[in-house]
């Protein structure tokens, strides 16, 4: 998963980025002002956006409005120091998905962020299942037919993304965009490596193969026929 943090306090932004990547295993990009934030947000590669309200350049409220105007559906979690009800209502009404008042608890922020991403991908349960492959979003672990599958962090992230988007064709570019930060191009070859390792760890010895490659189009995770 790829998360954008738009926060002008550099220290806070980096603390957030570190916590998210360390605890949820997500990739994080940071923007320190509203203009940069909006520019990055509209690229459409993010699975969630954390947005501070008081921003130089462009206030958070405007970033949010501009983003929603482009039709972008990325879940947005707003950080605010204003706790007046009216301000919160205005925020949610203008397209925010959730908010946290400052000073917030990192644990709560991570939980809300994960829930937002899950919902954004159309998943309600933190346990994702395809056939007898189960992935636990909270403990970041995978089971195949009741047996724990040991995965490296990068393998897990790749599988997590495919599971979230289960049934849909995911291109290599999409995987790269959502699993790496902005300079993902240099990683373009590693995807094939992770996919083949995943396939070996998950599908080996199983009758139903779940990871399918569609030549020239990408990958799909589903039970049964890839088409």
């Amino acid at each position: 998963m790829h998360v954008l943090v738009i926060e002008d306090e550099e220290r806070l932004a980096h603390n957030l980025a570190k916590a998210i990547s360390k605890n949820a295993g997500f990739v994080v990009d940071v923007a320190l002002d509203g203009e940069d934030g909006l520019h990055l947000a509209t690229s459409g590669v993010f699975d969630a956006i954390i947005l501070d309200l008081m921003l130089p350049g462009k206030p958070g409220q405007e970033v949010l409005a501009a983003l929603r105007k482009t039709g972008d559906k990325t879940p947005v979690l707003v950080l605010t120091a204003k706790e007046e009800k009216a301000s919160i209502i205005r925020l949610l009404d203008s397209g925010a998905d959730d908010y946290l008042p400052k000073p917030f608890d990192l644990g709560e922020l991570l939980a809300r962020l994960k829930a937002l991403i899950r919902r954004g991908k159309g998943q309600a349960s933190p346990q994702l299942a395809v056939g007898n492959l189960v992935l636990d979003f909270n403990t970041r672990s995978a089971w195949r037919a009741g047996t724990r599958v040991e995965l490296s962090p990068m393998e897990y992230r790749t599988l997590e993304y495919l599971m979230m988007r289960q049934g849909s064709v995911v291109s290599k570019e999409e995987l790269l965009e959502h699993l790496y930060d902005y300079n993902w191009e240099k990683f373009s070859n590693v995807i094939e490596v992770y996919i083949s390792t995943l396939r070996r760890k998950i599908d080996a010895g199983e009758r139903d193969r779940l990871i399918h490659t569609l030549r020239g189009r990408g990958y799909v995770l589903r039970k049964g026929d890839p088409q």
């Binding site: 306090e9 603390n15 916590a19 008081m54 120091a81 008042p101 000073p103 990192l106």
Partner: peptide, 25 residues
Amino acid sequence: ISDAAHELKTAVAIQKSTLQLLEQG
């Protein structure tokens, strides 16, 4: 007061996040 509260809350948020980050893992 609103501005001061915002600045103070942000300052506290930074401190808190730094410490919580240390606490995790």
